[in-house]
Design a protein around this nucleic acid. Structure first.
Lengths: 174, 174
DNA sequence: TGAAATGTAAAACGATCGTTTTACATTGCT
DNA sequence: AGCAATGTAAAACGATCGTTTTACATTTCA
């Protein structure tokens, strides 16, 4: 693992736990174990560092939901929450924190959500054997809901989403 | 509407649209049309002003969901999103922005979410004629999901949640 | 009428923000 | 051996942060 990966990982952890705005550059340099000169040479700016964090997270997340059934999608979320905890969606949080006024960040968020939406459509199609845009929209809502409700209701929120989605899929099956 | 209400309303709008951390006290004084001396005499501190904003929003929100059916709950959310737009849950966003490290804010968020959870339980009980904790959890997840998915998918997310919940309620009915 | 209360505008507080610069040490390559 | 690249620590940059203070004007009301 090279230093750039370390930087992104460490920055991701701080941004995720304390917020983008609340995390100062000196906390980042200290946690990453490098001078601010080096950090700026690597990352460019704080916003670009956040974009790198989001890009890495998008890759890691999308890899985790490489599944072909809706139930497996929520099993993956259950695992994610178990391993990483539940602090809500970093993409939506960062976009909200910055009021959508930092174009590179807003773009990274939009790209991720578009990819996620497309992935859910694919999973629903694979599971049913045909597409079902309404069910896909419901799955997106349940996934987003489980992600955010888990912040204050814990793993029970993910279980509830998983059982709900089982009912919806069963009803949609031909 | 007295000046304190104006202050809370104006602050709520800025915090909601640009984020708590990103909103400076001078933007608040200018938007509220008062000197910083008066603002501090009224609000105490930035954090206490945010707590006032959250408390007022809790009241307004809880009044809007004084309904006795699950469908009406999502109709209320549809109306909320139509009138106020969709920027996610201000309570969760503020808690995340501050890393949960400002006790008064963390407490206001916890209080609101507890009240919301209890209200959903009551609505489910009123709708079914008996309680159903699992359905209630599913309703919470769908509501939270519609709130956050609507940020990037618009009103379609709320419609999807509403149609999903109709299926779940129908199935739970005796 | 005159003190008490409440407001204002604006300067100042020390701290911290994101970022750049200065000055120097270490490394890798030819 | 010696140059170029890459790192460091630390000071400095101007700007802005949340908050308090100073000095003064207006209102309230006994």
């Amino acid at each position: 693992m090279d230093d750039t990966t370390t930087l992104t990982t460490v920055a991701g952890r701080l941004f995720d736990r304390h917020g983008y705005m609340a995390t100062g550059m000196d906390q980042l340099t200290e946690a990453a174990g490098m001078s601010s000169r080096t950090l700026y040479k690597r990352a460019g700016s704080k916003a670009e560092l956040m974009v790198a964090v989001l890009t890495e997270r998008d890759r890691r997340f999308m890899r985790r939901i490489e599944v072909s059934s809706v139930d497996a999608l929520f099993a993956a979320l259950e695992e994610w929450v178990r391993v990483e905890g539940a602090r809500g969606c970093l993409f939506l949080r960062t976009r909200a924190e910055t009021g959508g006024e930092i174009p590179k960040i807003a773009e990274a968020v939009a790209t991720h959500k578009a990819a996620f939406g497309a992935r859910v459509q694919e999973i629903v199609t694979a599971d049913l054997g045909h597409d079902d845009p309404i069910l896909a929209e419901q799955v997106i809502v349940l996934f987003e809901g489980a992600t955010h409700a888990a912040v204050y209701r814990g793993a029970a929120a993910v279980s509830a989403a998983r059982s709900a989605v089982a009912i919806l899929v069963e009803r949609a099956r031909p």
